[in-house]
Amino acid sequence: METLNVLRPIPSPIAHLSFMASQIWLRIIAAATSLVAAVLLFDSRQSKVFYGISLDARYSYSPAFKFYGIVNIVVCVFSVLSLLPAFTFGRNFSSSINYFFLFLHDLLLTLLMAGGCGAATTFAQVGKYGNSHTNWMPICDKFGKFCNKVEASLILGYICVFCYALLTVISANKARQVAD
Results as ranks from 00 to 15, higher is better:
150 V>Y: 01
38 A>Y: 03
7 L>Y: 15
163 C>V: 07
162 F>M: 09
101 F>Y: 08
17 L>A: 15
80 V>T: 03
123 F>K: 14
47 S>A: 01
61 Y>S: 13
167 L>Y: 06
21 A>L: 12
76 C>S: 09
63 P>D: 10
178 V>K: 02
154 L>Q: 01
133 H>W: 15
79 S>P: 03
16 H>P: 01
128 K>Q: 11
34 S>L: 06
13 P>Y: 00
75 V>T: 02
125 Q>S: 15
49 V>R: 11
58 R>N: 10
6 V>M: 10
67 F>N: 09
132 S>W: 08
126 V>E: 12
49 V>M: 04
16 H>Y: 11
121 T>I: 11
92 N>W: 12
41 L>Q: 02
75 V>H: 01
138 P>H: 09
149 K>A: 07
29 I>G: 01
178 V>A: 05
96 S>L: 02
110 T>H: 03
172 A>D: 06
134 T>G: 02
36 V>S: 06
94 S>R: 14
130 G>S: 07
74 V>I: 05
100 F>V: 06
24 I>T: 05
134 T>C: 09
153 S>Y: 00
113 M>Y: 02
171 S>N: 10
110 T>V: 08
22 S>Q: 06
61 Y>T: 13
157 G>F: 12
159 I>S: 06
11 P>Y: 13
58 R>T: 11
125 Q>R: 15
175 A>Y: 02
25 W>Y: 13
86 A>F: 05
161 V>E: 00
173 N>H: 15
116 G>Y: 06
48 K>V: 07
5 N>G: 12
110 T>K: 03
78 F>T: 07
128 K>Y: 09
177 Q>K: 12
110 T>M: 11
175 A>I: 04
66 K>L: 11
93 F>K: 11
165 A>H: 05
20 M>W: 14
145 K>I: 15
63 P>R: 04
23 Q>A: 10
49 V>K: 08
143 F>P: 03
9 P>H: 13
23 Q>G: 06
132 S>G: 10
30 A>I: 06
10 I>S: 11
159 I>Y: 06
52 G>C: 02
43 D>L: 11
76 C>I: 13
109 L>E: 02
125 Q>M: 14
71 V>P: 00
98 N>G: 12
99 Y>N: 05
59 Y>Q: 02
47 S>W: 02
122 T>F: 13
108 L>N: 03
77 V>H: 00
64 A>E: 08
87 F>L: 12
17 L>V: 15
56 D>P: 04
28 I>Q: 00
139 I>Y: 09
67 F>L: 10
99 Y>M: 09
112 L>M: 04
139 I>W: 07
9 P>D: 09
75 V>Y: 01
124 A>T: 13
98 N>V: 11
93 F>V: 08
113 M>W: 08
93 F>G: 07
179 A>L: 07
122 T>L: 15
34 S>V: 00
90 G>M: 09
133 H>Y: 14
21 A>S: 09
89 F>M: 15
21 A>M: 08
101 F>K: 03
8 R>I: 10
8 R>A: 09
140 C>G: 07
128 K>S: 06
